[in-house]
Design a protein around this nucleic acid. Structure first.
Length: 287
DNA sequence: ATAGGGTTACTT
DNA sequence: AAGTAACCCTAT
Protein backbone atom coordinates (compact mmCIF):
# COMPACT_ATOMS: atom_id res chain seq x y z
CA UNK A 1 0.00 0.00 0.00
CA UNK A 2 1.20 3.39 -0.72
CA UNK A 3 4.53 2.18 -1.82
CA UNK A 4 4.02 1.24 -5.38
CA UNK A 5 6.81 1.58 -7.84
CA UNK A 6 5.87 3.75 -10.69
CA UNK A 7 7.78 2.99 -13.81
CA UNK A 8 9.27 5.59 -15.98
CA UNK A 9 7.40 6.29 -19.16
CA UNK A 10 9.28 6.76 -22.38
CA UNK A 11 8.14 10.35 -22.33
CA UNK A 12 9.77 10.94 -19.02
CA UNK A 13 12.92 9.30 -20.24
CA UNK A 14 12.99 11.53 -23.25
CA UNK A 15 12.51 14.56 -21.10
CA UNK A 16 15.36 13.47 -18.90
CA UNK A 17 17.65 12.93 -21.83
CA UNK A 18 16.78 16.29 -23.26
CA UNK A 19 17.32 17.87 -19.89
CA UNK A 20 20.74 16.34 -19.53
CA UNK A 21 21.58 17.39 -23.04
CA UNK A 22 20.84 20.97 -22.17
CA UNK A 23 22.07 21.25 -18.60
CA UNK A 24 24.44 18.35 -18.30
CA UNK A 25 24.31 15.32 -16.06
CA UNK A 26 24.12 16.28 -12.43
CA UNK A 27 22.01 19.38 -12.86
CA UNK A 28 18.88 17.58 -11.81
CA UNK A 29 17.28 20.46 -10.07
CA UNK A 30 17.81 22.71 -13.02
CA UNK A 31 16.17 20.20 -15.29
CA UNK A 32 13.30 19.84 -12.91
CA UNK A 33 12.70 23.55 -12.78
CA UNK A 34 12.98 24.20 -16.47
CA UNK A 35 9.56 24.98 -17.84
CA UNK A 36 10.29 22.80 -20.79
CA UNK A 37 10.46 19.67 -18.66
CA UNK A 38 8.71 20.42 -15.41
CA UNK A 39 5.39 19.20 -16.71
CA UNK A 40 6.56 15.88 -17.95
CA UNK A 41 8.63 15.28 -14.87
CA UNK A 42 6.08 16.55 -12.42
CA UNK A 43 5.99 13.22 -10.62
CA UNK A 44 9.73 13.03 -10.23
CA UNK A 45 12.17 14.49 -7.77
CA UNK A 46 15.73 15.50 -8.46
CA UNK A 47 16.84 12.34 -6.73
CA UNK A 48 14.58 10.34 -8.98
CA UNK A 49 16.23 11.90 -11.99
CA UNK A 50 19.64 11.06 -10.67
CA UNK A 51 18.68 7.46 -10.00
CA UNK A 52 17.03 7.05 -13.34
CA UNK A 53 20.02 8.43 -15.15
CA UNK A 54 22.21 6.02 -13.31
CA UNK A 55 19.99 3.13 -14.28
CA UNK A 56 20.11 4.20 -17.87
CA UNK A 57 23.83 3.94 -17.77
CA UNK A 58 24.51 7.58 -18.49
CA UNK A 59 23.45 7.24 -22.07
CA UNK A 60 22.13 9.88 -24.37
CA UNK A 61 25.36 11.73 -24.84
CA UNK A 62 26.47 11.21 -28.38
CA UNK A 63 28.43 7.99 -28.48
CA UNK A 64 27.40 5.42 -26.02
CA UNK A 65 30.88 4.31 -25.20
CA UNK A 66 30.88 1.03 -23.42
CA UNK A 67 34.20 1.41 -21.77
CA UNK A 68 36.56 4.30 -21.35
CA UNK A 69 39.72 2.31 -20.91
CA UNK A 70 42.12 1.45 -23.70
CA UNK A 71 40.02 -0.07 -26.33
CA UNK A 72 41.78 0.74 -29.54
CA UNK A 73 40.92 -2.61 -30.94
CA UNK A 74 37.39 -2.25 -32.08
CA UNK A 75 36.52 -5.42 -33.80
CA UNK A 76 33.23 -7.17 -34.01
CA UNK A 77 33.04 -7.47 -30.30
CA UNK A 78 30.52 -4.74 -29.89
CA UNK A 79 28.17 -5.97 -32.56
CA UNK A 80 26.01 -7.73 -30.08
CA UNK A 81 24.42 -5.66 -27.41
CA UNK A 82 21.18 -7.50 -26.89
CA UNK A 83 20.69 -6.14 -23.40
CA UNK A 84 20.79 -9.33 -21.44
CA UNK A 85 24.44 -10.00 -22.02
CA UNK A 86 25.12 -8.24 -18.78
CA UNK A 87 25.31 -11.62 -17.19
CA UNK A 88 28.72 -12.58 -18.31
CA UNK A 89 31.89 -10.70 -18.93
CA UNK A 90 34.43 -11.62 -21.55
CA UNK A 91 38.06 -11.73 -20.54
CA UNK A 92 39.73 -8.76 -22.17
CA UNK A 93 43.11 -10.41 -22.56
CA UNK A 94 41.74 -13.21 -24.61
CA UNK A 95 39.91 -10.83 -26.83
CA UNK A 96 43.04 -8.88 -27.53
CA UNK A 97 45.38 -11.77 -27.97
CA UNK A 98 43.10 -13.98 -29.91
CA UNK A 99 41.47 -11.49 -32.16
CA UNK A 100 38.37 -12.31 -34.02
CA UNK A 101 35.86 -14.99 -33.88
CA UNK A 102 37.47 -16.90 -31.08
CA UNK A 103 35.04 -19.24 -29.50
CA UNK A 104 37.37 -19.14 -26.58
CA UNK A 105 36.22 -15.70 -25.69
CA UNK A 106 32.72 -16.80 -25.08
CA UNK A 107 33.91 -19.93 -23.48
CA UNK A 108 36.04 -18.07 -20.99
CA UNK A 109 33.42 -15.56 -20.10
CA UNK A 110 32.31 -15.81 -16.57
CA UNK A 111 29.37 -15.11 -14.38
CA UNK A 112 29.64 -12.43 -11.79
CA UNK A 113 29.67 -14.90 -9.01
CA UNK A 114 32.56 -16.84 -10.43
CA UNK A 115 34.59 -13.74 -11.05
CA UNK A 116 34.04 -12.45 -7.59
CA UNK A 117 35.03 -15.75 -6.09
CA UNK A 118 38.04 -15.85 -8.32
CA UNK A 119 39.04 -12.37 -7.27
CA UNK A 120 38.55 -13.04 -3.61
CA UNK A 121 40.60 -16.17 -3.67
CA UNK A 122 43.49 -14.64 -5.53
CA UNK A 123 43.69 -11.47 -3.53
CA UNK A 124 45.92 -12.07 -0.61
CA UNK A 125 45.84 -8.92 1.39
CA UNK A 126 46.69 -9.18 5.01
CA UNK A 127 44.00 -6.66 5.78
CA UNK A 128 41.48 -8.82 4.08
CA UNK A 129 39.87 -8.25 0.74
CA UNK A 130 38.44 -4.85 0.09
CA UNK A 131 35.99 -3.77 -2.51
CA UNK A 132 38.36 -1.71 -4.59
CA UNK A 133 40.81 -4.58 -4.87
CA UNK A 134 38.10 -6.81 -6.19
CA UNK A 135 37.00 -4.16 -8.61
CA UNK A 136 40.49 -3.60 -9.92
CA UNK A 137 41.13 -7.28 -10.24
CA UNK A 138 38.10 -7.88 -12.37
CA UNK A 139 38.52 -4.71 -14.41
CA UNK A 140 42.00 -5.72 -15.28
CA UNK A 141 41.00 -9.08 -16.55
CA UNK A 142 37.59 -8.63 -18.05
CA UNK A 143 35.71 -6.34 -20.28
CA UNK A 144 33.35 -4.50 -18.04
CA UNK A 145 30.42 -2.21 -18.67
CA UNK A 146 30.56 1.41 -17.73
CA UNK A 147 28.49 1.08 -14.62
CA UNK A 148 30.29 -2.00 -13.50
CA UNK A 149 31.28 -0.59 -10.16
CA UNK A 150 27.73 -0.36 -9.05
CA UNK A 151 26.75 -3.68 -10.52
CA UNK A 152 29.59 -5.30 -8.69
CA UNK A 153 28.71 -3.68 -5.43
CA UNK A 154 25.13 -4.86 -5.73
CA UNK A 155 26.17 -8.35 -6.59
CA UNK A 156 28.75 -8.49 -3.88
CA UNK A 157 26.24 -7.35 -1.35
CA UNK A 158 23.88 -10.07 -2.35
CA UNK A 159 26.53 -12.71 -2.01
CA UNK A 160 27.37 -11.43 1.42
CA UNK A 161 23.77 -11.53 2.49
CA UNK A 162 23.54 -15.05 1.24
CA UNK A 163 26.54 -15.95 3.25
CA UNK A 164 28.44 -17.00 0.17
CA UNK A 165 31.33 -14.66 0.83
CA UNK A 166 32.70 -12.76 3.74
CA UNK A 167 31.96 -9.13 4.09
CA UNK A 168 34.29 -7.13 1.92
CA UNK A 169 35.51 -3.95 3.42
CA UNK A 170 35.86 -0.73 1.59
CA UNK A 171 39.22 0.65 2.24
CA UNK A 172 38.13 4.22 1.93
CA UNK A 173 35.34 3.90 4.36
CA UNK A 174 35.62 1.51 7.22
CA UNK A 175 33.02 2.53 9.67
CA UNK A 176 34.04 1.93 13.21
CA UNK A 177 31.72 1.09 16.01
CA UNK A 178 30.12 4.16 17.57
CA UNK A 179 32.13 3.86 20.73
CA UNK A 180 29.42 4.23 23.28
CA UNK A 181 26.00 5.09 22.07
CA UNK A 182 24.06 3.48 19.33
CA UNK A 183 24.87 -0.19 19.81
CA UNK A 184 24.14 -1.43 16.32
CA UNK A 185 23.97 -4.90 17.68
CA UNK A 186 21.11 -6.39 15.69
CA UNK A 187 23.43 -7.59 13.04
CA UNK A 188 22.97 -11.21 13.89
CA UNK A 189 23.30 -13.44 10.98
CA UNK A 190 24.18 -16.71 12.57
CA UNK A 191 21.82 -18.54 10.36
CA UNK A 192 24.63 -20.59 9.00
CA UNK A 193 23.87 -24.15 9.79
CA UNK A 194 24.49 -25.86 6.52
CA UNK A 195 27.77 -27.40 7.51
CA UNK A 196 27.76 -30.74 9.08
CA UNK A 197 30.70 -32.56 7.62
CA UNK A 198 34.17 -31.91 8.91
CA UNK A 199 34.73 -33.58 12.15
CA UNK A 200 38.37 -34.02 11.49
CA UNK A 201 39.26 -31.13 13.69
CA UNK A 202 38.84 -31.71 17.36
CA UNK A 203 37.64 -28.19 17.78
CA UNK A 204 33.97 -27.80 18.39
CA UNK A 205 31.84 -26.93 15.42
CA UNK A 206 30.56 -23.84 17.09
CA UNK A 207 33.92 -22.48 16.43
CA UNK A 208 33.30 -22.60 12.76
CA UNK A 209 31.24 -19.46 12.77
CA UNK A 210 33.55 -17.73 15.12
CA UNK A 211 36.56 -18.52 13.02
CA UNK A 212 34.92 -17.53 9.83
CA UNK A 213 33.54 -14.22 10.96
CA UNK A 214 36.48 -13.21 13.03
CA UNK A 215 39.21 -14.34 10.72
CA UNK A 216 39.78 -10.93 9.32
CA UNK A 217 39.76 -9.29 12.68
CA UNK A 218 42.32 -11.76 13.81
CA UNK A 219 44.51 -10.97 10.86
CA UNK A 220 44.19 -7.32 11.71
CA UNK A 221 45.17 -7.99 15.23
CA UNK A 222 48.26 -9.83 14.12
CA UNK A 223 49.30 -6.90 12.08
CA UNK A 224 49.22 -4.78 15.14
CA UNK A 225 51.78 -6.79 16.99
CA UNK A 226 49.32 -9.27 18.23
CA UNK A 227 51.02 -11.53 20.68
CA UNK A 228 49.54 -14.63 22.17
CA UNK A 229 50.33 -13.52 25.67
CA UNK A 230 48.31 -10.38 25.14
CA UNK A 231 45.57 -11.90 23.12
CA UNK A 232 42.83 -11.18 25.57
CA UNK A 233 43.76 -7.61 26.12
CA UNK A 234 44.06 -6.90 22.46
CA UNK A 235 40.83 -8.59 21.62
CA UNK A 236 39.10 -6.37 24.12
CA UNK A 237 40.35 -3.31 22.41
CA UNK A 238 39.43 -4.66 19.02
CA UNK A 239 35.96 -5.51 20.12
CA UNK A 240 35.33 -1.82 20.32
CA UNK A 241 36.35 -1.30 16.78
CA UNK A 242 34.62 -4.27 15.37
CA UNK A 243 31.24 -3.34 14.12
CA UNK A 244 29.99 -6.80 13.61
CA UNK A 245 32.18 -9.31 15.27
CA UNK A 246 31.71 -8.22 18.84
CA UNK A 247 29.94 -11.30 19.96
CA UNK A 248 32.31 -13.47 18.06
CA UNK A 249 35.37 -11.92 19.57
CA UNK A 250 33.87 -12.37 22.96
CA UNK A 251 33.52 -16.02 22.31
CA UNK A 252 37.06 -16.26 21.09
CA UNK A 253 38.18 -14.55 24.23
CA UNK A 254 36.42 -17.12 26.28
CA UNK A 255 38.06 -19.84 24.37
CA UNK A 256 41.40 -18.24 24.88
CA UNK A 257 41.01 -18.06 28.58
CA UNK A 258 39.54 -21.48 28.75
CA UNK A 259 42.59 -22.87 27.12
CA UNK A 260 44.89 -20.84 29.21
CA UNK A 261 43.46 -22.19 32.41
CA UNK A 262 44.25 -25.64 31.26
CA UNK A 263 47.80 -24.52 31.03
CA UNK A 264 47.39 -24.99 27.38
CA UNK A 265 49.51 -22.48 25.58
CA UNK A 266 47.58 -22.73 22.40
CA UNK A 267 46.54 -19.18 21.94
CA UNK A 268 48.72 -18.68 18.97
CA UNK A 269 47.63 -21.99 17.60
CA UNK A 270 44.06 -20.85 17.71
CA UNK A 271 44.94 -17.76 15.82
CA UNK A 272 46.55 -19.84 13.16
CA UNK A 273 43.65 -22.18 13.16
CA UNK A 274 41.23 -19.36 12.52
CA UNK A 275 43.13 -18.25 9.49
CA UNK A 276 43.50 -21.70 8.01
CA UNK A 277 39.92 -22.50 8.69
CA UNK A 278 38.64 -19.45 6.90
CA UNK A 279 40.80 -20.28 3.95
CA UNK A 280 39.50 -23.78 3.87
CA UNK A 281 35.97 -22.51 3.98
CA UNK A 282 36.62 -20.22 1.08
CA UNK A 283 38.00 -22.99 -1.03
CA UNK A 284 35.27 -25.43 -0.19
CA UNK A 285 32.70 -22.92 -1.26
CA UNK A 286 34.12 -22.79 -4.75
CA UNK A 287 32.61 -26.14 -5.44
C1' DA B 1 21.52 19.53 -3.93
C1' DT B 2 24.27 15.82 -5.42
C1' DA B 3 26.57 11.30 -5.37
C1' DG B 4 26.77 6.97 -4.14
C1' DG B 5 25.88 3.01 -1.03
C1' DG B 6 22.06 0.40 0.38
C1' DT B 7 17.16 -1.66 0.08
C1' DT B 8 12.86 -3.08 -1.82
C1' DA B 9 9.82 -4.56 -5.33
C1' DC B 10 9.23 -6.20 -9.60
C1' DT B 11 10.69 -9.08 -13.75
C1' DT B 12 12.71 -13.00 -16.12
C1' DA C 1 17.32 -17.60 -8.08
C1' DA C 2 19.45 -14.02 -10.62
C1' DG C 3 18.82 -9.60 -12.62
C1' DT C 4 16.89 -5.09 -13.03
C1' DA C 5 14.63 -0.85 -11.97
C1' DA C 6 12.64 2.20 -8.61
C1' DC C 7 13.20 3.99 -4.18
C1' DC C 8 15.62 5.16 0.40
C1' DC C 9 19.44 6.96 3.34
C1' DT C 10 23.01 10.06 4.28
C1' DA C 11 27.85 12.11 3.97
C1' DT C 12 29.67 15.77 1.62
Amino acid sequence: MGNQKLKWTSEEEEALKAGVAKYGAGKWKNILVDSEFKHKLANRSNVDLKDKWRNMGGQGSGANSVNSRAKSITNGALTHKPQSSALTLVPIDNVINKPPQSPEGVKNSKKYKEMILEALSSIKDRNGPDFVSVLRFIEKKYEVPQNFRRLLSLKLRKLVLQGTVEKVQKRYKIKHAPLGTKTPLPKQKVARSKSRRDTRCSISTEMEDAAKIAAHKIAEAENKAFVAAEAVKESERLSQLADEADAVLLRLKQIFEQRKEKGDDTSSKIVLFCRRWSQALCLSRLA
